[in-house]
């Protein structure tokens, strides 16, 4: 290595990979995928991997993808919750890999939830909570 810029490059590259171990993670986005029996049976694993690979492809080092158990609405699986800083939790349902990738692009990167995939849309309830 012959320069500081090379050092900086290694720093950035590796940090993307191990960011999640840092204590002061800034502006972290969290995706929690339902991975109970029901979720896995409905295809949650490829969905989760789609979140991981899409985030990694876009070099989003501030995204963590984790799993959770069954929350009881098994008919909507695969499901995922997306938490952004300063935003309310958004619950997505009936996911597939395609949808997961779109959620990363529109919601996590651009901050606009994909309304049509949310649980509120699926249950036929609009965002204000009134019956449609």
């Amino acid at each position: 290595m012959k320069s500081l810029s090379e050092l900086e490059q290694i720093r950035k590259q590796t940090l993307e990979r191990i960011q999640m171990r840092k204590e002061d993670r800034e502006n972290e986005a969290r995706v929690v995928v339902g991975m109970a029996t029901c979720g896995i049976a409905a295809g949650a694993r490829p969905v989760m991997m789609a979140f991981v690979t899409e985030a990694s492809r876009r070099k989003l080092s501030n995204v963590t993808v984790s799993q959770t158990g069954c929350i009881g609405t098994c008919r909507f699986e695969p499901m995922a919750d997306v938490f952004l800083p300063d935003q309310e939790k958004v619950t997505y349902v009936n996911l597939d890999e395609q949808k997961a990738r779109r959620i990363v692009a529109e919601h996590i990167v651009n901050g606009k939830p994909v309304y049509e995939y949310t649980i509120t849309a699926a249950m036929g309830v609009n965002t204000r909570g009134n019956e449609q």
């Binding site: 500081l4 050092l7 290694i10 720093r11 590259q13 590796t14 940090l15 171990r21």
Partner: peptide, 25 residues
């Protein structure tokens, strides 16, 4: 307990050798 001590890249990721660069530069 945070980095892999046998991997220099992980040390560099957490600002390793930055101080040396600063001192020399």
């Amino acid at each position: 307990g945070v980095i892999d001590p046998e991997n220099i890249d992980e040390y560099i990721a957490f600002d390793g050798y930055k101080a040396l660069g600063k001192a020399l530069g």
